[in-house]
Design a binder for these strands. Structure first.
Lengths: 227, 227
DNA sequence: ACGTTGATTTCGTAA
DNA sequence: TTACGAAGTCAACGT
């Protein structure tokens, strides 16, 4: 990895056009050739960047300008990132090696596992029939049965938006055509449900349910399973 | 901005749990207190991070360990980022000042403005009724009228995918319920339309139209407006 | 290789 | 402040 602290001006042309006026910034060049230009604020997203694979060509500017170097970074497409350096305060090369990588826990998959073990938290009368119940257009997260003998399809998201309602609607449309199932209701379960998704769900007769991951973790699994 | 090249181990607990084993990495601390941990690969996204506002408390570990420092970064919520440093190869402070910021050009808003001024480029018989025409589930980008007296809802994207067709379909469903409008057609306008979106659009009776930003810029605005 | 989906998304804008 | 949609999103997973 190469780190430069430098006063520079940046132009990007590709999926859009963007320009950064001359200012002091951090330029990061990773060993795969990717380049990112950071300022001292905002979130982790750089002001400008070029993702790998890409190649850098370095050019010396005309003598009479104040510029010291011009980088032209190009990728396989037609994207071009041009960095004009005025002053390079530091230019450091460091060898970080290959990172052992990140281990995550608590994403949608975990939520699905917990709800599969505790479907009654969604609605008291539910027992699990199957996780990832297959349909022609993809698997439904959970298929449950009610004590009254009906079925409930559950779509699980970390954050539910309108798309989630559309997805569950398509599943329900298919499941309701299956004469073996009969009546099928829909539940949209998520840690956070956007108001518009909630509205559309109600409009479609789908029940939106907010779930709490930490609460779920403290539960003992439902015992009255079908299988 | 403070930059450290250091061998460190990281734990994050918050919206999820994540762990990074001990390895040499770049740790970036911005002047707003935000912290990000980068490796020498992948895109610009860091392995772990804590966004501002947050605070860092530094602790010295017990003497017999190999650790030199432990940082605990916390924000207003319950998120905690713990960085255990084994070896700090370098620790640099640089003053970048406030960045003058990025200027973008060529995004959806520009497209919408240009098409609102030149609806006839979409189809010869169109005049603008309203930009951001409101419906119960959100505003339609453009509502136009035809010379024949019908209406056309226009959804504008930089790149149109299947979602864009779904979105316009929902708008059309609502608009067609409105007895004041009567017949409402749909146009999907984008700089680039993915084949799948084009296919679905045709299937739904929606007209996909490719627009050229540079061509639009050279046009004089339509004169035959309704308002 | 390509498409789909989730994300500690981030970022802008409007209500 | 909140909520919503777009992004040069990025990254993981399946086909």
């Amino acid at each position: 990895m190469r780190l430069l602290i430098a006063t520079c001006e940046v132009h990007y042309t590709g999926r859009l056009s963007a320009h950064l006026p001359m200012a002091k910034r951090l330029v990061m060049v990773k060993s795969d050739g990717s380049v990112s230009i950071h300022c001292d604020g905002g979130a982790y997203k750089p002001l400008n960047w070029m993702g790998a694979p890409c190649s850098i060509s370095v050019e010396q500017p005309a003598v009479q300008t104040t510029l010291t170097q011009i980088w032209t970074v190009t990728n396989k497409g037609s994207d071009v990132l041009k960095i004009s350096f005025a002053d390079i305060e530091s230019d450091t090369q460091v060898d970080l090696g290959v990172d052992p990588g990140l281990a995550k826990d608590g994403v949608e998959k975990d939520l699905q596992e917990l709800l599969a073990a505790n479907p009654s938290t969604l609605r008291g009368d539910l027992t699990l029939v199957q996780r990832e119940y297959p349909t022609a257009i993809g698997p439904v997260d959970l298929l449950c049965r009610t004590t009254a003998g009906g079925y409930v399809a559950v779509e699980i998201k970390r954050r539910a938006e309108i798309d989630s309602v559309e997805q569950l609607t398509r599943y329900l449309e298919l499941l309701r055509r299956d004469p073996l199932l009969g009546n099928v209701e829909g539940i949209l379960a998520a840690q956070m449900i956007r108001p518009q998704a909630r509205t559309l769900a109600h409009d479609r007769g789908i029940e939106p349910v907010c779930v709490d991951l930490n609460e779920l973790r403290g539960l003992t699994p439902d015992e009255n399973r079908l299988f």
